[in-house]
Amino acid sequence: MIEYLPGLFRGVIVTIKLGFSFFIFGFVVGNIIAIGQVYGNKFISLFCAGFAWVFRSLPALVILYLWYFGFNLSPFLAAVLALGLRTAAYQSQFFRGAIQSIARGQMTAARSLGMSKLRAVVKIIMPQMLRLSLPYISNEYAITIKDTSLAFAIGVVEILKEGRLIITVLHNPMDIFMIIAVIYLIITRGGTYLLSLLEKHYRIPGFEISN
């Protein structure tokens, strides 16, 4: 059994690489969508809202297939884009909620000092928005890691696939699946723990969404 561990380890690396890639991609796009939805003109706002709705409503697998078959991409890249747009849609809604919970007066005060709208968004709104959405983002990170398993369906050899390969040889499915489950628990728990440290570090006394 020991000789199969390197294979599992390779799978872990792919899982982490995939998860981080599309989480960060989703984070950036999610920010843009949220800001577009709140501060954009009618057309941009509607587009961003529509984007968020569609990618939240479609099953991950359908998005994966559309990218994979539609654009002839490598499985890994297709997975990053497909799963990335999905988490972007979810993240954008946390960010939007956070922006809307920040009092309107913050924007007005920034503009009254002579800041441009863009500068006010970057310097005043975003630092508050990111802090307020951190708890949700940390939850979304756990979901992201679990979603990497779906890339299996278009042939990305991540941990679950590596596990299945080992099982076909060793015929000990439960052992392998339990090891995989524990690995997932470590990655998701470890990550959310690190994010909770970040949350503590950036906490501002008296400033949080209360519910």
């Binding site: 920040i102 009092a103 007066g105 913050q106 007005t108 005060a109 920034a110 503009r111 009254s112 000092l113 002579g114 005043i124 630092p127 508050q128 802090r131 501002i204 400033f207």
Partner: peptide, 16 residues
């Protein structure tokens, strides 16, 4: 706007 200060009823200090 830089040349005109504004003080708000609700203070509007930047929370962060």
């Amino acid at each position: 706007r830089q040349k005109k200060g504004f003080v708000f009823q609700q203070f509007n200090l930047f929370n962060h």
